[in-house]
């Protein structure tokens, strides 16, 4: 680990002014950043500890929730309002990592976690994300955990967060503050596809700080599910995960949300499938057609082609189960 200075701040203004220093990085729970520093992938020279900021979950004026970026993952999943009104988010958070890590990790840090691609982690490998222009060893190597959607010849890494998949489905917004003022971005626009600049994970600009995540009021609490498929039954990153939410009007789909994890450089909101389903009857045939449409452009690599089939199956199965839920929970 490269030596660094450390400042714990209690005012956002202090954080933002320290955050403009060259080499500065904001530090949350450290569950990802400390690991990346130890691997010499991240080499900040100043850590600005923001765990004391934005630690509340508040009602939004429009009936949604504003979750402070400093709130611990466990605290979000335990919050009664989240559990009752946004169970999808609670489930997704609980699917991630281990209890110990969820107790440490903050919401802001979770959003900003970096890929778990083995070639990104190995400083002897070629990786455009770690070392722009050096090439991508993953595309011709081990890529079981890699992207089938939105990848580029430069990078096929996936975003490892479970929480963000639920946030994408729930139309969450990321509130950002920075040296040039505050702004909001839809979570689905916050993370980037790799294109030819995979070193840039998100739209966050230098010195900017995530202050909160805002959930709009509709939490799809009656019919929603987070299904994570992985290589062991717990404590593993997703091969494919599906956040699904449904509102039915009789037998028809009034509203549907679908987002996929483990398949792309960002949490993948399934806009194509959603559009295909809007207003349609809630039947397995339509679900299958929509899944097919969403995955039409999916491309497999050596080890991950199975994810295309798997993603389709889990989408269909999730929607079938949600539509069949007679007396859906809550």
């Amino acid at each position: 680990m490269t030596p660094f200075l450390y400042e714990k701040v209690s005012e956002r203004g202090d954080a933002l002014s320290l955050g403009t220093h060259p080499g500065a990085a904001y530090l949350g729970g450290g569950t990802n950043l400390v690991d990346l520093m130890r691997e010499a992938i991240a080499r900040p020279t100043l850590l600005v500890d923001v765990t004391g900021l934005s630690c509340k979950i508040e009602e939004d004026e429009k009936g949604g929730l504003r979750i402070g970026a400093g709130v611990k993952n466990t605290a979000v999943a335990t919050d009664r309002r989240v559990r009752a009104r946004f169970p999808l988010l609670a489930q997704a958070i609980l699917a991630g990592a281990s209890a110990q890590i969820r107790n440490m990790a903050t919401v802001g840090g979770n959003v900003l976690q970096r890929t778990r691609c083995a070639y990104f982690y190995d400083d002897e490998a070629h990786c455009n994300k770690r070392s722009p222009g050096s090439g991508c060893d993953a595309i011709g190597g081990f890529n079981r955990n890699h992207a089938i959607l939105g990848a580029s010849p430069a990078c096929a890494a996936t975003h490892p967060s479970d929480m963000c998949v639920a946030l994408a489905a729930l139309d969450a917004t990321v509130s950002i503050d920075g040296p040039r003022g505050s702004r909001d971005l839809p979570l689905t626009d916050f993370h980037r596809l790799p294109g030819d600049a995979p070193e840039i994970d998100t739209e966050l600009r230098s010195g900017e700080l995530i202050t909160s995540i805002v959930l709009p009021s509709n939490g799809f609490s009656k019919r929603s599910s987070y299904r994570k498929v992985r290589d062991r039954s717990s404590y593993a990153f997703a091969l494919v995960s599906v956040a699904a939410a449904l509102e039915l009007d009789g037998g028809r789909i009034k509203n549907v949300r679908l987002a996929l994890g483990g398949v792309a450089h960002k949490p993948w909101r399934a806009h194509v499938a959603e559009a295909a389903l809007a207003g349609r009857p809630a039947t397995e045939a339509f679900f299958a057609e929509a899944a097919e449409a969403e995955l039409r452009d999916a491309k497999g690599l050596r080890d991950n082609t199975f994810k295309i089939k798997l993603a389709k199956r889990v989408i269909v199965d999730s929607l079938v189960k949600l539509s069949n839920a007679k007396d859906a929970p809550r």
Binding site: R116, A118, Y119, Y121, D122, E124, A125, D137, G140, G141, F142, D231, R232, S233, S234, Y235, A236, F237
Partner: peptide, 23 residues
């Protein structure tokens, strides 16, 4: 083992999976 380089690419307990309690 990455055949191109002879390098082990999952040298960690996060990527070399062993059974956990729930398994």
């Amino acid at each position: 083992l990455d055949e191109r380089t002879g390098r082990i690419m999952n040298p960690s307990l996060a990527e070399y999976h062993v059974p956990v309690h729930l398994d």
